[in-house]
Structure formats: C-alpha cells, structure tokens
Computed example of a mutant assay.
Amino acid sequence: MYRMREETRARAVVAGAVMLGWVGLLWLLEGVDLATGHSLDSHGISPREPGELLDIVPAAFLHSGWGHVASNSVPLLVLGFVAALAGLRRFAGVVLTVIVTGGLGVWLTAPANTVTLGASGVVFGLFGYLLVRGFVDRRPLDVILGVVIAAVYGSLLWGVLPTDSGISWQGHLFGLTGGVVAAFAFRRPRRTSIPAAPTLPTGLK
C-alpha cells in the first residue's frame, strides 16, 4: 500500500511538472510572438494548402493574444494533468493523436483565407479522451472520473457548434474526435487470467 502511494505521488509530481512546463511554454511563445510583431502567427493552419500541413503541430502551441492563451491555460492544465497521471508515454500518444486529427480536420474544412491556431483543439481532445476512456478500458474509477469531468467542463461541447465566426469550431470538433479516437487507440490491454493446470486423480500421477 505504501509503495502504491509513493508511485501515485511520483506520477502526480511528474504530470504536474509536465503540464506546468507546457502551459509556461505557451505563455513564453506568445510573448515571443508579440515581441516580434506576431511573426509566429504565420505558423497557424491555412486550409487546403499542402505546405500548411507542416504547421499542424506548431499551430497547437501558438495563440492570437494574451486573452486567447489565458482562456486555454486552466482547462489544459487540469485536463492534461489528469490524463498524464496514467503515464507519459500514453499521454504523449494521446496528445499527438489529438493534434494531428484536429489539425487535419481544420486543414480540410476551415473556411478559405483563414488562419487557425491555439491549444483549444487539444483541450477539447483531452476532454473527449477523459470522457470515454473509462468506458473503453472498462475501469469504473475512470468512468466516475469521466462523469466528474463532464459535470465540470461539459459546457465545452457548445464549442463544437458553428455559433461564432471568430472561433474555430472545426478545431474543437475534430480535436474532440481525436480524443475519442485516442481513447480506443491507446486503450489498456485487458488482463487474461491463466487457467490453472488440471488436477489428475491420485492414481494417475
């Protein structure tokens, strides 16, 4: 029991450090962007231009102002921390799946002459991942955690609707889709019990 608590505490420390570093990086990049006359904004995703496929990953780390990065920081920190508790290797796979799925969705469906950037697609992806992970893995504790996440952040789902022309609902929708895909792609293997060897009658040993 003591060893399990120590392992859980160690995972929490690592997950917290990773997410604080990630959010800190987002603020640092926004500071660099503002100091250089928004030079980093060119790495956002412009739809259906082949060269823009290279910007799918960088776009998830860039924002269009302090308000934009601030609105993403807290949910990213919270949802990322919870997801990272299951292990950094799995977490990295989930995040990459979300970024690629969300970025490709934006590249394919966003309106022409637009530039999409920001970590909100990752936020929606982590939300979707945590929402269904427990059902996919058949782990009751994660199901309960998903219900809590839904209760706290369920209003995020409104962001997948095209209600505001200034917000990339495509990034939200496909980010959410990427999170669900990741829950299946990185589901925990089920343990199979090894059947006990049959016991032979005493006279046949």
Rank of each mutant, 00 (worst) to 15 (best):
M4G: 09
M4E: 11
R5V: 13
R11I: 08
A12P: 11
V13S: 04
G16I: 06
G24L: 01
G24T: 02
G24Q: 00
G24M: 00
L25F: 00
L26P: 00
L29S: 01
V32Y: 05
D33E: 04
T36D: 04
G37T: 03
D41L: 10
H43E: 04
S46D: 07
P47H: 14
R48V: 03
R48H: 12
E49F: 03
G51Q: 04
D55T: 11
D55G: 09
F61L: 01
H63C: 02
G65M: 09
G65T: 05
W66C: 00
W66Y: 08
W66F: 02
V78D: 03
G87R: 01
F91A: 02
A92Y: 02
A92V: 07
T97L: 10
V98D: 11
T101F: 14
G103N: 09
L108A: 14
P111A: 07
G118L: 04
S120P: 07
G121A: 14
F124G: 10
G125V: 06
F127W: 07
Y129D: 09
L130K: 03
V136Q: 00
R138M: 06
R138Y: 08
P140E: 12
V143F: 07
V143C: 06
I144E: 12
I149K: 08
I149C: 08
V152H: 01
L156K: 08
L157V: 09
L157S: 11
W158C: 10
G159I: 09
T163E: 12
G171F: 14
F174G: 10
L176K: 06
G178F: 05
G179A: 07
G179R: 01
V180M: 13
F184T: 00
F186A: 07
P189F: 08
R190M: 13
R190G: 15
S193F: 14
P195C: 04
P195I: 02
T199Q: 15
L200W: 15
P201Q: 13
P201S: 12
